[in-house]
Design a protein around this nucleic acid. Structure first.
Lengths: 190, 190, 190, 190
DNA sequence: GATGAATGAGCCTTCATTCAT
DNA sequence: CATGAATGAAGGCTCATTCAT
């Protein structure tokens, strides 16, 4: 169940993401995935037990990938706003670059594929982010609001920005990014 | 003679929303919908030509319903922040009360059911909201940012709040609502 | 099961014949029949127990109607060729006038609706025709061939003529009828 | 790799013909066809897009098959009556051997499956037969009747003979065949 | 009696999965 | 390993039949 040609898994994943973005989770078939990835239907079943496992594994991978990159260049010792900015920018960039993944995860959340445990376990990877915000609160730089709500607030702002960029094929200029960061920051700063 | 009972349409819609929230668009069948609504499969086909039409019609209805209620109690002559608050509160309340619709619309966006035209036409109903924000900008009460971005910002904040409330079964206290409104307002105020 | 409004039965029959001619036995539904006849689906079930009975009863009626008219103006005492001509002309005229019935019967022959008994019992009504041909044989006016084959021969000639007339929208001139009668007669005459 | 087994098409065709002969076009399902042919329902859809296409393709094949064999052993240089006899015998033999096809075509003629174009295009294959009859007319061996009517006459005689043979499980003796040929010939000879 | 909405068994078709090559 | 034909369970939809009005 773990053959050497690991690259095929990535091709299957890429095809799946692309197709879900275009047709939604309800609009894809294993055959479509195989065709798009460039091989026969049966080949998919060499690398995955079944369709559900393919979806679940991709779901997990997407979350892991996000986690890894969110904290790129993040220095816990840096001043709060600097650190916040670093992660914020990472989140924005990754969400744009991996828009398919974002859509895929959204579609999976309400689907028979993803179990409650899978959903729950996906939160742990954001611990450093939560810790940073807690620090911001203790340094009285941001509002004394339950950290979890601040996370939701930031997530919401970024997510909707990205969707708008993607759906309307808008260019993401530095100027615009700065403006949006300011809005986001002004909302939470003390 | 038994007349066509148009109220059945609403029961079918309600059942569909509930099921999509629980299983996603990819996890529902016409049979499930009929069962949940309390009648036979064939009955659904008396009121809708096929599954696609059922989804599309529900999609349109959801958008229309939202539009109507967003502007409940809205007085265009009121001071900007008062008007903004009215609509903001409506948006929050409606999104919570009609969470199923919110999820349904989200799932539909990437699905074979909704055409690009349908997606596009859904924007017009928000014109009064856009006008209000334009006024806020001209009164120098909110930032000189493209209105469309402010709309995305507000939508993102509210949407993520509601999701969090719903997924974590959190109570929505007035205190919490005020805090979130302040964050949202602070983000855009000039 | 035998209500007074007998005329509705005829309207149902007429609608069925017309529809079978156009769409074949496999292409019709009870709803289509009711619509074409001008009333509601349920009404059909007041006059017939079910679809099968409707078909069977119509099948029987068609055969009976044929029988009755085949022998119109037939005088058993007339010279053989005169009597033969009378019936032959009746057969031709009826087949043209009731082309829908002809097609209906043809379609029914290979269908789950008509039982072997129904098929078999339909032969009895042609006894006078058979007797006439037997007489023609004993008078040495027609060939000494098994009567049943002569019947098949005549039936085949007429049937194919009628089909051709109908499918190609050809006018049936007296001249043409005479020619075809001569061909038919020359084939069997001694 | 298992290559597409085109011979399955013939098995599907054979099963369909057999079933239509027994139950009529209105009495068959794709499932019945698959079962009779010996494989799963889905297999039919590897070789045909849908039920309609299966019927249409079979219809076309039947017509082509007929055409090919009608002219077996036919020598255009032979004396007229010899050539006529050759084709007549072929027609009889083929109609008996391929009785299922004959019934299938008859049922298709009035069905939602066969388009007018398909019906029309099926006539061209009989051109050599028409030419032969024209020659017979110019040689004054057969009656000066529109060739198309002679074709209908011959077709009718043969068709009804074959039906009778099949429906009554009668043996087709050479003696009987000769008798019928004589009747057919006497009908058209000058 | 007449209506046509409601029912659900059954048909056509799809698609996840298997398996022979 | 890779392939794609074969499988058959399950979904969308139709339609014969029933039933409330």
């Amino acid at each position: 169940m773990k053959p050497k040609d690991e690259s095929k898994i990535d091709e299957i994943f890429a095809a799946t993401l692309e197709l879900v973005k275009e047709h939604g989770l309800s609009g894809i078939t294993v055959n479509m995935i195989a065709k798009k990835a460039g091989f026969a239907t049966g080949t998919v079943y060499i690398y995955f037990e079944n369709k559900e496992q393919l979806i679940v594994k991709l779901f997990e991978k997407c979350f892991y990938a996000y986690a890894k990159d969110y904290f790129q260049g993040f220095d816990a010792a840096a001043p709060f706003k600097v650190a916040f900015h670093t992660i914020w920018m990472n989140m924005l960039r990754i969400s744009v670059e991996h828009f398919s993944e974002l859509i895929f995860i959204e579609q999976c959340f309400h689907s028979p594929f993803i179990s409650d445990e899978t959903r729950a376990s996906s939160k742990e990877i954001l611990v450093p982010w939560r810790n940073l915000l807690d620090r911001g609160k203790s340094e009285r730089l941001i509002k004394q609001v339950d950290t979890i709500w601040i996370m939701a607030y930031v997530r919401g702002v970024i997510r909707e920005m990205v969707k708008f960029i993607k759906y309307n094929h808008v260019e993401m200029t530095p100027e615009f990014v700065n403006t949006m960061f300011d809005m986001c920051w002004d909302g939470i700063k003390d």
